[in-house]
Amino acid sequence: MSDDPMRVLTALAVPDSGLRAESVLAAARASARRRRIGALAAAGLAGAVALTGTAVAVVRAEARPPMVAGPAIAAVPTVPPPACTVAPLARPGRDGRVSVAAIDPSGRFVVGRLDAAGGPWLVVWTDGAPTVPAGGRGFEPHDVNAAGVIAGTLDHQAAVFRGGEAVRLPVYEGTTAADALGINSRGDLVGAADRNGRRLAVLWMIDAPNPLGLNGDTLSRSAGRIADDGLIVGTVDNGGRAATWLPPARAALLPAPAGPGEGGAAVDVAGDWIAGWAGHTGPRKQAVRWNRRTGAVEALPGLAARAVSATGTVVGSSYGPTPGPALWRDGGLAVLTAPDGGTGGALVDISADGRTIVGYGGRTPAIWHC
């Protein structure tokens, strides 16, 4: 394990997102000064903001407004499943239970975990071939970028795995545990840290020595994924509302479709699309897809959403008449076939082009090529 928490990140050659640590931190400090002299007198007002100049209407998280009504939830439309081949993920050369966590945007890297003697262990599939890195003992993966850099957790602390090393990230002030849940192509990471019984959204920028808390501590919050342009998606108020951040701006609440229940979270972002859930009936969370460019808000009935591709395909699991690994595209829900020809299971993640998907067929980790 490296003694330098950020050294392994700095060698990564990645496209420029336009975000710079000095500008984000300077803006954050200026924002803090404005708040101290009374600008928060207007924080209780709901405001209309736009996601990175797009048409999706949002409101400030700290205002805690009522749920914003969008399109009503409809009956479950179904479409024929796409033509996909499916196979179990190749097992690593050790006994134990294997789980799958994520696939990178290119579809080349898949990451998961092996629960075996001396572990758990990180598992990395590269072009379908599994390896169990010696430096991955105890590392829990959550996301991976196209360079194979993995966001995760090590010994209850946010960590990154690159070049065979698991490295703990700097601890956010006053927190006792943390998870790095998302990573973009630049190597910026987002996640959540625990402090005094609350989850706080945190950003680790590749060119900054210290993590940045997102929006102070007025609400419990968690950041789950970060896009290449710096947009962060997650939840505020312990799963109370789906939200986005574009540092140094404050959290913005995503509009929710009309329907039963409250609560919500944005779980993934790719291209113009954000996927998540808003509202629920009992344990069933209502999947939602937001379009950053057009402002469209679409309920996806019958689906529990886990991830979205840059083409807008949302993957997860079906809770309709035919439960199992499912996706939403072309205006409807399609249930995919498991490796043994049956159903059951869930899709966990999808490549940017929407053609490679990982998840479970029944309880078997599997990969679909569509």
Rank of each mutant, 00 (worst) to 15 (best):
E262D: 08
T294K: 13
R186Y: 00
V269I: 14
R162G: 00
V314E: 11
M205H: 10
D155F: 00
G282T: 08
A208P: 05
N210G: 03
T364N: 04
D95S: 10
G38V: 07
A42C: 01
I103S: 02
P257T: 08
A72P: 01
A134C: 02
A57V: 09
A72G: 02
F139I: 02
A287E: 03
L203S: 13
N215P: 02
T131F: 02
V144E: 05
D340A: 07
N215L: 01
D272T: 05
A27D: 14
T85Y: 00
Y360Q: 07
R293K: 15
L212N: 11
G70L: 01
G324L: 06
A50N: 10
R20P: 01
V68L: 12
P321M: 08
V24S: 14
A83H: 08
A305G: 10
R94N: 01
L51K: 04
P255Y: 10
W204H: 13
G361L: 04
A193R: 12
A352Y: 07
T343H: 14
R113D: 07
A223Y: 09
P82E: 12
W368T: 04
T356Q: 11
A27G: 15
S23Y: 09
P339G: 05
G239I: 06
G96P: 03
C84E: 04
A75F: 04
L303S: 08
R250F: 05
G316H: 15
V59I: 00
V68R: 15
T175A: 11
S309K: 08
V8A: 15
P257Y: 05
D330C: 01
G320D: 15
P170Q: 03
R284K: 07
A117E: 13
V233H: 12
A305E: 04
R33A: 12
A13R: 15
A243V: 09
I206H: 14
A55D: 13
P257S: 03
G320H: 13
R284A: 10
G47Q: 12
C370E: 04
L347M: 12
V79E: 04
A48T: 14
I37L: 13
A334T: 10
V190D: 15
A180T: 07
A243F: 03
P130G: 03
V56Y: 04
L253E: 05
F161I: 00
A87C: 00
E140Q: 11
N210F: 05
L189M: 13
G240V: 08
G276P: 05
A32S: 14
A326K: 14
V149N: 01
D104L: 03
W290I: 02
V348L: 09
R225S: 12
R137W: 02
G53T: 06
V308H: 07
L303K: 09
V160N: 03
A352S: 14
L219I: 11
A30S: 14
L214C: 10
A192Q: 13
R241W: 00
S318V: 09
D104Y: 04
S23D: 15
A310T: 04
T153D: 07
G187A: 07
L200R: 15
W125G: 06
A352T: 05
G320Y: 10
G93P: 02
G263E: 07
G271N: 10
P301D: 13
A278G: 12
N238T: 10
V123N: 11
A326T: 10
S185I: 00
P247A: 13
T294A: 12
A243D: 07
L114T: 10
D104Q: 04
